[in-house]
Design a protein around this nucleic acid. Structure first.
Lengths: 114, 114
DNA sequence: AGATAACTTAACCATATGGATAAGTATCTG
DNA sequence: CAGATACTTATCCATATGGTTAAGTTATCT
């Protein structure tokens, strides 16, 4: 599970798909409801849904002619867990501050930014 | 910042790059140190570093002939914040459980939505 | 039954991605 | 100064990605 996290990240690495997941966090929706805000033809859009579904981020069920999609929270929770397990590390890594401080100290200050 | 989150996700959507970030969470490292565990030629590897750097997930500095890389925690924190802001939503979305229960109950229960 | 709605499938296309080699550029080390 | 180190830059290549249009396939509505 934790081993294929990059698949989840990859699925979220597209603005359309990220928006779909955000929308589904509000509740289930049909394919056309989900597609409506996105300026692209349906076949392109359903490909995105396929990628999200194969990544385990969403699930869908067809009833009659309408397919309803649901967010799959375990996959999102897996990302959250990954971050939580590393939070102690990135919370203590202030390499950036080191860098910033050396600049503020006037050392080879080529970028006055900030 | 929050608007380009998919760029961060995309950068982490590759096993090599995800591993690099995990490695850098332990502390800074040179390009060749980072490349060593990955079975690919250097040019391919440095492309990955470029993607991580453009996504703002890492930073690097060259001193002499060795380039040292650092994880950029703000980008990771942005992902964490995004999840935190939506945690209430995905923590309460038990569409999956609904689904499971309707099957166990043998009921054609399509959406009892809370 | 015929029309419409809600997808699906198929075929195609341009560009991006992830890799490889080969050769080049600084920067140490002896 | 002559290597050796540590990348860089430049090409190149196969496949994946994100999009298109056209033509199905099933439901549902009138």
């Amino acid at each position: 599970m934790d081993k294929y996290l990059h698949v989840s990240f990859s699925a979220l690495g597209d603005s359309t798909r990220l928006a779909v997941v955000e929308r589904l966090l509000q509740g289930p929706a049909s394919v056309s409801e989900l597609a409506e805000p996105h300026a692209m033809a349906l076949p392109a859009f359903t490909k995105h849904l396929g990628i999200l579904e194969r990544a385990g981020l969403i699930r869908s069920e067809k009833q009659g002619r309408v397919r309803t999609c649901f967010v799959q929270t375990p996959a999102i929770q897996a990302i959250d867990t990954w971050l939580a397990q590393r939070r102690a590390l990135w919370a203590s890594r202030y390499d950036n501050l080191d860098h910033l401080m050396s600049r503020l100290n006037g050392v080879k200050n080529d970028d006055p930014a900030i």
